[in-house]
Write a protein that binds this DNA or RNA. Structure first.
Lengths: 213, 213
DNA sequence: CAAAACGAGAACAAGTAAAGAACTATTTTT
DNA sequence: AAAAATAGTTCTTTACTTGTTCTCGTTTTG
């Protein structure tokens, strides 16, 4: 990866080395010791940097240990395209949870369609944004963040169950999710019902006759 | 680049050599050592010259190292380094010739948006295809070929001077170029007036607030 | 010969890294 | 159920890296 500091790269290379240094995801303490560091606190900061590049799975106290993402593994098998690959998460259809793919897939997205922040790709199902040129079957590039400015197009999770792609308008006592489709209604919610999961930064469409999935 | 000094060119050539001298962006110190210089201060001045020519990405302490720009990479080889990069040719605006960029640029386009045949990228200017979700400022991926089936969206060169992106309908005695915009007229030509330059296979759009170029 | 380009090195600013302590959440042991 | 152990997180202090700027000779170039 390009945007890593020296030590971050060292950690990544250590984890990617062949044969793997650990048979299981190592705890921060173990990894630090194996790399000759005496403090897991310092290592934690390096790991956070790799996490921002989506090279390491988010840490979780319930399943301890640092795990590389598929993206990092692809990088290790010296596939340079993996460097600017984004996770293709699954499909978003208004009114349903995001439908994740069983297997992790990646798309190599041009720099022009993404930001410096972590991004991922969803496939759009439905016509809620047709009037802004986002059609059924398009892919959208989403910057992962939990806040947005009014007028931005967001992935919003409503009532912790329904995901949808809409224009957002936030006011102190209500949140509006506005479709770009005259056939559809603007939805109004209490702020507590709506959780922003990301903001639209790019869009792609294939016109090839036989495009799978 | 011609307005580079001797040493500036040396540095550029060193970085462009095959195989690449570094697997990651080298710090000034490392690069200086690798080139047999003892001072990064001197190297820094050379780098500044290359930076002024936009051959090197601006340095940043947070992501240390010297990185070449796409421009430098394109300059160094006839083909771009990434296998899935496509040539970004320029802009297409209905009724004018394709406006080519001065310098060669490339975009890394996902496999899903291209075909196995040679493809290139154009930026769309104008609203002739809005009703099919292709907006002003979008990029389109074009498969380079000189024939099309009726109903396909093509880059057509009319009277050897005007390039345009339209839906094509071809009949023995006339060719129709149909816009996807109720405000615009379908144009009718004699087959000899219309030359197909490629067929639309993909489309991309950026929603980032500050997209340059 | 004069101007520009270059190399080495010193000094500086801003950010990264290491260590260790303190804290939180979770699991295991007693 | 309480206590202890484990593992991730946060913070502070100190040391180190890295890019930046300058100066002073030396080399190259027109």
């Amino acid at each position: 990866m390009q945007n890593l500091t020296r030590k971050q790269r060292d950690v990544l290379e250590f984890l990617l080395q062949e044969p793997p240094p650990f048979a299981y995801p190592p705890a921060l303490e173990e990894l630090a010791a194996a790399m000759g560091m005496k403090s897991r606190g310092s290592l934690h900061r390096l790991i956070q940097g790799l996490l921002a590049e989506q090279l390491i799975e988010p840490l979780d106290r319930r399943h301890p240990g640092v795990r590389l993402t598929d993206k990092a593994l692809a990088l290790g098998r010296n596939k340079p395209e993996a460097a600017n690959a984004l996770r293709y998460v699954g499909k978003i259809a208004a009114g349903r949870p995001i439908e994740a793919l069983e297997d992790q897939r990646y798309m190599t997205v041009p720099d022009e369609l993404k930001t410096n922040q972590p991004c991922y790709v969803l496939k759009v199902q439905g016509d809620s944004m047709v009037e802004l040129g986002i059609l059924d079957g398009d892919w959208v590039v989403i910057e992962q963040r939990c806040h947005a400015r009014n007028g931005e197009i967001v992935v919003a999770l409503v009532n912790k169950s329904e995901a949808t792609l809409k224009i957002i308008e936030q006011y102190p006592h209500e949140v509006l999710l506005v479709p770009a489709n005259a056939q559809m209604e603007t939805m109004r919610y209490h702020p507590s019902q709506v959780e922003i999961q990301g903001v639209l930064v790019g869009q792609m469409r294939s016109y090839r006759p036989l495009t799978l999935k």
